[in-house]
């Protein structure tokens, strides 16, 4: 039911872990629904230079988490904020219909991490 791409990211998820010196952290989802994603980002000159994630969730949740770290790396904050759930799903050669909400999780986590970064910036300045 999952594409080869999904299974590849599920088997070998990219960028798993935490960033100790993160500039922004986003956490979305809830354990009640069975998926939580936490994302750490490093920002240099307005560009996302590094990301790490931890995800509690199904195969699709783990694969979309992994995929978004690859897509977002090297993007400006504005570009990264515009990464949609559909784009992530397409990059994974599609997701089963029931799993489309998992790609929202990844896009939302990235938005939350960027918002956290911006908040920290504005309170620092």
């Amino acid at each position: 039911m999952y594409s080869e791409k999904v299974m590849d990211h599920f088997r070998n998820p990219r960028n798993v872990g935490e960033l100790s010196q993160a500039d922004g952290i986003g956490e979305v989802g809830n354990a009640r629904c069975g998926d939580i994603m936490k994302l750490w980002i490093k920002v240099e000159n307005g560009v996302i230079s590094d990301l790490r994630f931890k995800t509690f969730g199904c195969g699709a949740a783990i694969a979309t988490s992994s995929m978004i770290t690859e897509i977002a790396k090297g993007k400006t904050l504005d570009e990264a904020e515009n990464i949609t759930d559909n784009l992530i799903a397409e990059a994974l050669d599609g997701l089963p219909p029931l799993k489309m909400h998992c790609s929202n999780l990844a896009a939302d986590a990235l938005k939350a991490a960027i918002a956290d970064y911006r908040l920290k910036q504005s309170s620092a300045s």
């Binding site: 299974m7 599920f10 088997r11 998926d35 509690f56 969730g57 199904c58 195969g59 949740a61 783990i62």
Partner: peptide, 14 residues
Amino acid sequence: EFIEGESLLLNLDL
């Protein structure tokens, strides 16, 4: 605790 069943099943299937 702390993990989700489907990802467990996929890993078992592998």
